[in-house]
Amino acid sequence: MMNQIILGLSTGATYSLVAIGLVMMYKVSGVMNFAYANMGMFVTYLIWWLATGAGINLYVSIAIGIAFAAAMGVVVERYGLRPIRHLSHASMLIVTFGILMILEGLAMQIWGTDYKAFPELVTGVPYVFRGDFGIFVLRRQDILIFSILIAVSIALLIFTRYTKFGIAVRAVSEKEDIAGYMGINVGSVLAFSWGFGASMAAVVGIVAAPKVFVSPTMLTYYQIQGFTAAVLGGFETFTGAVFGGLILGVIEKLVGNYISEGFKATISLVIIIIVLIFFPKGLFGRNVRGRV
């Protein structure tokens, strides 16, 4: 049971990272990014190609990939979404669908559809703890993903509470027009939110790739679960996104283990519906809210 929970938390931490990126883009720009998984997928291919095809050091490739992801997010927001911001939300959603398909098509054209192996960032024997509680096992990959989640969470906390630009991000997500009257350049905050979100997608791709292999649909399931996690957390705060992901990961693992592996996905849909019925604002929703 204990080990199941740890494995669940580890998967859940990846869902948290997905949810953090989705929530950032949604809170600031009001757009649900359907292309999120494919942005991460495309960048993971790029990193895989840089590291294995072009022979660049893996960590350098990762740095290039994340920078490329950020640039992609900024360009998509600036040139794909901002020109039609005044039209409607539906039109912006359609643009993200378009990008989803373009990236998938490009990846298939360039790299084909067969699965590619992606190197583990950390390897080595797992840590085993024995005690009154029994035995539990902590894999090094779990430690990596927990560390990434903790680092991202702390960085976000400091950023949104104590930096001027972080305050500007919150101001735009609550009242965009009034943020402008304060001298905040709303456009640069919008661009930032998409740049940040796309980099998170890249990080998710990198940590998921060793497990799921690199393929055009490698992150589709992660996007669905990240979205569920965000809804669980209220689609409002980063804290909600983090805990939503962890809770979902554990539930999914326990369902997969004790009920049926095939039920995993269905269960998350049921969870969304139940949460929305009993907690319309999510488990971590607040009464004072910005963009809905």
């Binding site: 001027k164 305050i167 919150r170 609550e174 905040i184 607040r286 809210r289």
Partner: peptide, 12 residues
């Protein structure tokens, strides 16, 4: 900005 503190509003 309702969701922010007085101080954060002033900082904005």
């Amino acid at each position: 900005f309702y969701s922010m503190t007085v101080k954060e509003n002033l900082l904005a």
